[in-house]
Amino acid sequence: MATLEIRDLHVTVEADNATKEILKGVDLTVKQGETHAIMGPNGSGKSTLAYSLAGHPKYTITGGSVTLDGEDVLEMSVDERARAGLFLAMQYPVEIPGVSVSNFLRTSATAIRGEAPKLRTWVKEVKETMAELQMDPAFAERNVNEGFSGGEKKRHEILQLELLKPKIAVLDETDSGLDVDALKTVSEGVNRVRATGEVGTLLITHYTRILKYIQPDFVHVFANGRIAASGGAELADQLENEGYEAYTKGGPVTGGNSGGAAA
């Protein structure tokens, strides 16, 4: 069973000629089949965690470790991480002029699967998945994310999730900017992948509404660059009612204890 282990992860970024520590010791274990929700205030470092796992060059790892089934993820290049089974649905997917969605998806699937998928079954697979996500087939011929609306970009991310079948999926605010119907469609996509039991999901979100469709096994509060508290699904409701205040102001936070920290 695939396991992602994040231990005492410290990450900095360079901003305005200064080095700023964003992640200050993140500990988290995500196993295949589990769904973890991460909630936390703006700027607490959630996307930084997601990007650091994917290997974005802007983020410097200054301490700690990340392993996938014991393999050192931090030693891998961005594409090696993806081929090892990590997937990041981005908060802000990137536009790539001149590269069509169909070409992109096929190139990507070929890289991840280690061989080019058979054309006939592939075309069918893409078509069906797009239909399920209520994406117009015309998107296949459009350039990657170019001119896509916010919601269309998110569907396109989940389309990739479904086609690439990663071991660990990090979904960074996939629910932001979606209307109710789109949220449902996109959640169903995530749930189809979860239903295989073969993916561990790390769901970053600000809102509990997505958690009504995608039930998490664990909820973590992210504050000041680390996990401030962890609990079950009930912790999300508590956060919705009480906010993050208890975790953000003053005092050292003790991570790892379930839910109670907010009381």
């Binding site: 290997g55 594409d79 991480r81 993806a82 790539i96 590269v99 990507s108």
Partner: peptide, 18 residues
């Protein structure tokens, strides 16, 4: 762009070519 393509498993050289 390079990061996005690489994060989908596409090696850097191929991403650049794409």
């Amino acid at each position: 762009q390079l990061f996005y393509l690489q994060s989908r498993g596409i090696p850097a050289e191929e991403a650049r070519r794409l």
